[in-house]
Design a protein around this nucleic acid. Sequence first.
DNA 1: GCCTAACCGAGACGGTACGTCACGTCTTTTA
DNA 2: TAAAAGACGTGACGTACCGTCTCGGTTAGGC
Lengths: 208, 208, 208, 208
Amino acid sequence: MSPADSTAAEQPVRGRPRSEAVERAIIEGVMKLLEEGVSLAEISIERIARTAGVGKAAIYRRWSGKEELFVDVLRTAEPDDLELPGTSMRDDLIVLLESLRRRGLVNRSSAILHNVQVQMKSSPKIWAAYHNTVIAPRRRLGIEVLRRGQRNGELRLDVDVDLVNDLFVGPMLVRAVLRPDADLPEYLPERIVDTLLAGLRPVSTPVP
Amino acid sequence: MSPADSTAAEQPVRGRPRSEAVERAIIEGVMKLLEEGVSLAEISIERIARTAGVGKAAIYRRWSGKEELFVDVLRTAEPDDLELPGTSMRDDLIVLLESLRRRGLVNRSSAILHNVQVQMKSSPKIWAAYHNTVIAPRRRLGIEVLRRGQRNGELRLDVDVDLVNDLFVGPMLVRAVLRPDADLPEYLPERIVDTLLAGLRPVSTPVP
Amino acid sequence: MSPADSTAAEQPVRGRPRSEAVERAIIEGVMKLLEEGVSLAEISIERIARTAGVGKAAIYRRWSGKEELFVDVLRTAEPDDLELPGTSMRDDLIVLLESLRRRGLVNRSSAILHNVQVQMKSSPKIWAAYHNTVIAPRRRLGIEVLRRGQRNGELRLDVDVDLVNDLFVGPMLVRAVLRPDADLPEYLPERIVDTLLAGLRPVSTPVP
Amino acid sequence: MSPADSTAAEQPVRGRPRSEAVERAIIEGVMKLLEEGVSLAEISIERIARTAGVGKAAIYRRWSGKEELFVDVLRTAEPDDLELPGTSMRDDLIVLLESLRRRGLVNRSSAILHNVQVQMKSSPKIWAAYHNTVIAPRRRLGIEVLRRGQRNGELRLDVDVDLVNDLFVGPMLVRAVLRPDADLPEYLPERIVDTLLAGLRPVSTPVP
DNA sequence: GCCTAACCGAGACGGTACGTCACGTCTTTTA
DNA sequence: TAAAAGACGTGACGTACCGTCTCGGTTAGGC
């Protein structure tokens, strides 16, 4: 989690060690600003330092810029893991979509973070970092669920699981990116999953 | 298309009229910068003016800021209309998705514009403008196609067309936002449409 | 008085003749601004045009810049002539100094104009024009009075009239430039003239 | 001499202290521009910063505007003190006038500074600052010399020393403000002092 | 108990861009 | 052709941040 995790050599620390309190104060300072409704563009390093009661150098000592810092802010805000029921593919998918709806990419109650993610898309380097640590694992989890479904006979074998994963995730992303106003009951994960599964079951039976 | 379209009164022009050439030079200057790979964050009003060979005031006279300008840049780059074959709902949907894939929200060849859209999400006012003039019309078109499909017997009557529209648009958005690397044949519009329609036809027949 | 006085050829006017009303409106606009306490530096050509209800071009058609315009403003504000009593050198000098005190270089009631003059010193070209048309004639008048005094036996013959003129003008200038606060009765022209004449009379008699 | 002289409390310095080198570079940058004949109006803060190799903020950190800066430029150029012979009032006055002629208000060799002073008159606040630190002390010195003269019997007791001081200073100011061309031997301080003293001695004796 | 090195908050540093304003010129319609 | 109006390129205004660099002072481990 620490920004200096990757350094392997672990040379003996000389001089005063970095204060973890400073680290926390900075990240929480960014959070506080975001929660106050301060636009991403309005958040400057100087303002972060001011809010956190910290010198600018303390920030630059840890992150090379605003974007790198934001990656860690997002990582801190991310849910660490996701408990899947495992009773059926359908149940797992519903939980996955529900988690998308509630937080992470499609966080509605704290829509603040969404903008951070969206902003990061402009910086390929940052986006890659965020993609690797947050988005890709989640995608892998979804695909794994679908593969298990295929083995269990819940999902046709002739479909591309990558594509099917996108079919499930897509509506949630549309809501988050294009239709932030829409929060209708029609968009309940259960309904989406069932609608899609209607055409994806191995033996395609008429809908009752 | 002009930034001052909305003013209805059409009062008699006094003084020297604004040069259309300047207008074009500014918008094309932004395009040029974007094509040169200049990051969105690196594009300043001063740089635009320098590139377009124009004074800063000429820009501020037309747009109140960078974001407003970008809206018009996007509008200029947008396809003006979309020719639907009208032979069937399936064909229309394929054309719609194909247009999404090729340009607009999911522009691959000039992926530059995507970042502009994504950036705009940070500014609610700008996003609303862009949403109203570009995204909403496209969505209305999709929903109209679906409604026609319901009347023609190509789409079940008990589904929510809003949701179904999102089901179709979703995968393309996932690719654009989360998986810019993915350009596999599996994501051909034809394939997506057929996969989804499998579970959405009134009389659900097995896929051939 | 008109700015185009110097043009001698008097070629037949072609097209619409220049409006004298515009000319007056511009000069009076500047006066109005000065009287309202607007600092010289705050008076821009654009503001003058706005105040006078006139286009900028109408100003540039007549004067090549702000300074040239100010010369004419000062010329308009200047007293046209000065009535000397002629009864004696002493009386003439008192009138001269009194006129200095009341207006022109040492204008107290409308001290505004003083700043215009002072500002003009920065522009050699303008200063020359102002010097030739306003200051030099006044100086010539003073020297003439002194020469007459020498012929009448009121002033010693062995003094340099240029220097003596400066002796008389000097105190008023000190007051105007260095001591704008000082307006004491001690500085009455009568007193200055008598104090100086005490040492300048041909037969030096004790002061009564 | 420093712009922050007045702060008495001497609170412990926090952060990086301001560089004296920057201070010097700015003032000398202005001097350099003035010596190159750049008009006062052409000297912008941006140009000063460019010339001094300094950021604009470094200037605004020290002075609130161009005028405040000019006050310090003048103060730096001013002679710090003036050595009076003290042998007699006449000798002291000659030295005073000579110093006026050579530098300060009536600096001929570097006439550049004169325009700065003259320009400052437009800004009352600035003028007051300059008056208090430069002009007033010099005036006090002159008046002190005159008072000593009265006690020594060199000056009549019934004259107003303020007025008499102006009589002495006046001619030098006339030359500086109105007659920059005049540098004749007649204007030697010795001559002016003697001419004026002729009528101001306690026992007024005929001039030989 | 020192020494040394890296940390800390603070803030100055040379830059760049902001959005506004005035410059002097140019281009329109109207008289 | 002059008139008012106002757009044009240019460039200065004063402010805010950028990322770097001193300051004096603090906080640890190694001597």
